[in-house]
Design a protein around this nucleic acid. Sequence first.
DNA 1: AGCGACATGTAAGCGGTTACATGATTCT
DNA 2: AGAATCATGTAACCGCTTACATGTCGCT
Lengths: 184, 184
Amino acid sequence: MSLEHAILGFLTYRPLSGYDLKKFFDESVRHFWSATQSQIYRTLARMSETGWIEMEHIEQEDRPDRKVYHITNEGRDELRHWLTTPLDLPAIRHKWLVQVFFADQLSDEETITLFEAHAERLRQKLALFRNGVQEVVERRFTEGGSKRSRRLWQFTLDYGIAHLEWELQWIENALKDLRYLPSD
Amino acid sequence: MSLEHAILGFLTYRPLSGYDLKKFFDESVRHFWSATQSQIYRTLARMSETGWIEMEHIEQEDRPDRKVYHITNEGRDELRHWLTTPLDLPAIRHKWLVQVFFADQLSDEETITLFEAHAERLRQKLALFRNGVQEVVERRFTEGGSKRSRRLWQFTLDYGIAHLEWELQWIENALKDLRYLPSD
DNA sequence: AGCGACATGTAAGCGGTTACATGATTCT
DNA sequence: AGAATCATGTAACCGCTTACATGTCGCT
C-alpha cells in the first residue's frame, strides 16, 4: 500500500501531525498520489498499532493539541523494503476512453466535441501545473531538504508535465484523423 | 459511473449475458477499463432495477441456463447522455512515482534499479500489446461491427501503445539524467 | 460578523478485488 | 483423468470519498 509508505517517507523528514501530513501530500505528491484528511488520520492510527510509527501527544495552550508521529526503526526498515520492491504497472482507468470506444453512438460533431473538450481540460491542467507547482518546490527547499531529494521531486514534476503534454499532443493529432471517420 | 455505461455500450451491439459481457470487456476495453465477473453480475442486477436494461431467461438443455440482457429505450437515452457529458480528468495513482519521490532513502545503484525495473515492465507490456491485441480486433470485426466502431476501437488501442511508448522513452531519458544525481 | 488557519476525528457509502461455491460438457 | 469452457452467483474485505462534527484564534 502506497499511502502508508508515503507517510513513512514524509516522517523521515521530521515528526509530523496528521494535519501537517495533509499539507505535505497536497503540496508535493498530490498530482500522482492524493490523500484525504480522513484517510490520513485513520491510517496513522493503524500504523501506530503495527509499530511503524509512534505518537507523542503535545499540549498547546493557544491552539488545539497536536498528535505528532515519528517513524520507528521498524518503520524505516519497512520503507526501505518497499522502496526496493518492484511494483506491477498500475491499471489504467480512463473513463474518457470508454466514451471514445462507444462514440459510434454519436454524430461527427459530437465526437469532435468529445475530443476537443478533453483537450481543453488538459490545457487547463497543464497551465495550472506550470504556474503553481514550481513555486512550491522553491519555497519548500529554501527551508531545508537535500539536493538529492529535490532532484527526485523535480523528476516527478517533470513526469507530470511531460505526461500532460504528450496526451494533449496525441489528442490534437487524433483530431486530424477524426475528419476521416467512416460513416457506416 | 463508467462500468454501467460500458455495459450499455456493449448491449447496443446485441443482447448479452453476464458471461458474454465479461468476454467483451476482456477482449476490448480491458486495457483502460477492466471489470471482474462478480462486478458485472452485481451491476446487471442493479441496472435491471433502474430500467436501463431488461432480462430474459433462456433455458438450455445441454448447458447452464442463460440470463440475457437487452438495452431499453431509457438505457439508450442514458448512454447517449453520458457520452456527451464532459468528464473530469482522472486522478493519477502511480505508486512507482511515490517510490521515485522518496528514493533519497536509496543508494545510487538502487535508484537506477528502480528506474530500470520499471522500464523493463513497460517493455514487456508493450510487447504483449503489440502482439496480442491487433489479432483480436481483426477477429471480432470479420464477424460484424461497423467501420466507424472499428476506427474508434483502433483509437483506443493506438492510445494505449503510444502511451506505453511515451512512458518508456521518458524513463530511458530520465535514466541518463540519473547519473548526475546530487549525493547530499 | 465572518472567514481562514489550526487541529482533531467519526460515519456512511461506493466501487472494486479476492475468494468461495456449484455443476455440466467437451476436449486432450 | 484432468483441464478448459460454459454459466451463474454470494460474501468478505479494502481503499477511498463525502459528509458530518467540534472548537479556538487571528485577521479583515
